[in-house]
Amino acid sequence: MSAVGGEPRNVRVELGARSYDILIGGGLVARAGGEIAARLPGVRAAIVTDRNVGGHHAGALAQSLEAAGIASTTIVVEPGERSKGFATLQEVVDGVLAARLERGDVVVALGGGVVGDLAGFVAGIVRRGMRFVQIPTSLLAQVDSSVGGKTGINTAHGKNLVGVFQQPALVLADTGVLDTLPEREFRAGYAEVAKYGLIDRPDFFAWLEENWRDVFAGGAARTHAIAESCRAKAEMVARDEFETGDRALLNLGHTFGHALEAATSYDSARLVHGEGVSIGMALAHRFSARLNLASPDDAVRVERHLRAVGLPVSVDEIPGELPGAERMLDYIAQDKKVSRGALTFILTRGIGQSFVARNVPASEVLSFLKEVLAS
């Protein structure tokens, strides 16, 4: 891990005039004011955070902004996935407008994926688009949701169905704040790290199999894993900003995972996002083997690694009852849409060989879900 005050790792997201830096290292919350002022001179800020993260880090961030000459107001929401809804969206929008912030000012997301998605959506719609900075405080947000500009909220119909693309001007991934994460949240974030290896970086997945304990412990291995994950996503976003092509590969595990989250009513006591992704990746590899696209040995290898780090890999590890296969298929159809009876899935031909399968018959998925839910 970079020492506090040391030079952070820099991963660049190349999007022409809207390119931005992802800085990765220790002490970046304390340095945030200077980093933001250097890129966005003269702005005022709205800090959007949740009650848990705000108690740890909002004061230090506000102090850093003040030291750099940036006046700020702090808007606090309740922690958890249920804040990603219309009611909380309205509260945050009203807070930004009440602070009389202008279009050229900045919304700063200080928190995990929920806060980042919510605050980014606010930045995208208030005054038809404000500036936006991500300061992700969870591993999941640092390696995934803070990068790439996808924002949004959930509805009763499914996850992330209302939102906009709103690229940040800067991402500050402070590795030091991860030390305050509950172990369950860190593990959940690790699912997204493993995902990058499974998409198209088999050497990275093999490295994780050997070094995951060091990633959990912190230090150089953790910084390397975060930087490699950000680099993988940055390259994909640069090629396909609006997810019309291979950026969809980033949804590996998410089609099943989002359906499971919707089926549990986004109750984090039962299932958090990264756990849903972990189960989803295991199911995607099992489904690929069922369709004779990949060896069953690959599914076994994926499950072995995810289990080793303490992540769930099967639906029977989710507390409480789940809906039947037909209802689960409805959630999947909402997440990725049906086109003439066929679904789009991210499937695999092996470790690091994922691809977009656009014509998966709903009947095949339903049959698979019946097997999974009966096991």
Rank of each mutant, 00 (worst) to 15 (best):
S2C: 05
R9F: 06
N10I: 14
V11N: 09
R12F: 05
R12P: 03
A17K: 15
I22L: 13
I22A: 07
I24D: 06
G25C: 04
G25A: 00
V29K: 13
E35N: 10
R51T: 12
G55V: 07
E66F: 10
A71I: 06
S72H: 09
T74N: 11
V77L: 12
K84P: 04
T88H: 06
V92Q: 14
V96L: 10
A98Q: 11
A99H: 06
A99P: 11
L101T: 12
L110T: 11
V115D: 01
V115E: 01
A123E: 11
I125Y: 04
R131S: 10
F132T: 05
V133I: 07
P136C: 02
T137D: 01
S138K: 12
L140W: 06
D144M: 07
G149C: 03
T151R: 08
G152T: 08
G152Q: 13
G158D: 02
L161W: 02
F165Q: 10
F165T: 13
Q167M: 09
G176C: 13
V177W: 03
L178I: 11
P182D: 02
R187E: 04
R187F: 05
A188C: 14
G189V: 14
A194N: 10
L198G: 09
F204S: 08
F205T: 00
D214M: 02
V215N: 07
F216V: 06
A217C: 11
A217E: 03
R222W: 05
H224E: 15
A225E: 05
A227E: 06
E228R: 14
S229H: 01
K233V: 08
E235K: 14
R239M: 03
E243D: 12
T244C: 01
G245A: 15
R247H: 01
H254C: 01
T255R: 04
T255G: 12
H258P: 12
A259H: 04
A263S: 14
A263W: 07
T264A: 11
S268C: 06
G274I: 10
G274L: 02
G280P: 15
R286N: 02
S288L: 01
A289H: 01
R290E: 08
L291C: 10
A294T: 09
S295M: 07
P296W: 00
A308H: 02
V309A: 03
G310C: 09
L311T: 10
D316Y: 06
L322V: 05
L322G: 03
P323R: 12
G324R: 10
M328Y: 01
L329M: 10
Y331T: 03
Q334Y: 14
V338N: 04
R340N: 09
F345C: 05
I346K: 12
I351A: 00
G352R: 10
Q353P: 04
V356Y: 04
P361F: 04
A362C: 02
A362R: 15
A362S: 15
E364P: 06
L366Q: 06
F368I: 13
K370L: 08
